[in-house]
Amino acid sequence: MNSSVISRRIVQLILIMIGVSVVVFLMLRMIPGDPAQLLLGELASPEELAALRHDLGLDRSLLVQYTIFVKNMLAGDFGISMRTGTPVINEIIPRLAATVELSVAGMVIATVFGILAGILSAVYKNTVVDYTAMLSALVGVSMPVFWLGLMLIYVFAVHFQVMPMMGRMEMGTEMHAITGLVLVDALIHMDFAVFKDGLRHLVLPAVTLSTIPMAIIARITRSAMLEVMNQDYIRTARAKGMEESVVILRHALGNAFLPIITVLGINMGLLLGGAVLTETIFSWPGLGRYVVDSLMGRDYNAVQACILIFAVLMALINLGVDVMYAFLDPRIRVDGD
């Protein structure tokens, strides 16, 4: 991957951001619902509504509003939340950290167990192992997140009382946030009690979040593995007398990784933006819930900022996937196209 590819990617990113900002800006204003009316509720007088619209800048033309939005954004200012009056960025950063922590944990579980299940069912194709793994994948992808989350809470937090029920830390824990990621902060502070507590709080929501991507990863891994397992070089490796585990993990999995990485990237993006249900069930103070609440309140500035952040994250993940391709497949590294 040479520098021209990277610079082309950056130009693409900028174009995407401009497109996303226009689309989000217009769509928000096209959906019915007046932020001022929603803020003031049932007994708002026309004067109060007009005054608030003026304060929020909603009485200006769309073009002026958009220009202000872009100008401020370029200066790193995403505006003031219409609902709370605080800078949107201050609302987003702690929630983004919570979402990142949860999605990464969910993705780690999904990747480890998904790939493992995929390899096993490819190696033991058409056996009980294969059928069990693929049936579990079917169940995993079809199970409503909502139901699974509530059941996990009921079984582990209410019935056996071995896991915490909600939130990121024990209520009343005070820790100075540095990164906003509880586990990382706990390690920085060398506070292992908090680390353990944070980890325990992470398990149930991360498992809930992991089932769907895990199932997808398992299926993709299985089919990618089956494809390469029939290749000549695998036969050659075996013929050379290599150990079966080396054949599978190095020669087969290494070459089957490209489609798996693609799926990992897509799913990571989905988890970052789509953890709303899991966050709601487990009272996880993440960004997914915030976007929904902001959208319901027509908090234009907050929604715009969140969507732009999601777009950047998505683009970065895609870039990461491309870099991984290059790393895994020397052929991509050379020509860049």
């Binding site: 509530l150 009382q161 909600m166 209520m171 009272s283």
Partner: peptide
Amino acid sequence: KSIPETATRLMALQS
């Protein structure tokens, strides 16, 4: 404590 899901809030009270 914000517990947006009613079912979770109910279980938290019950337990």
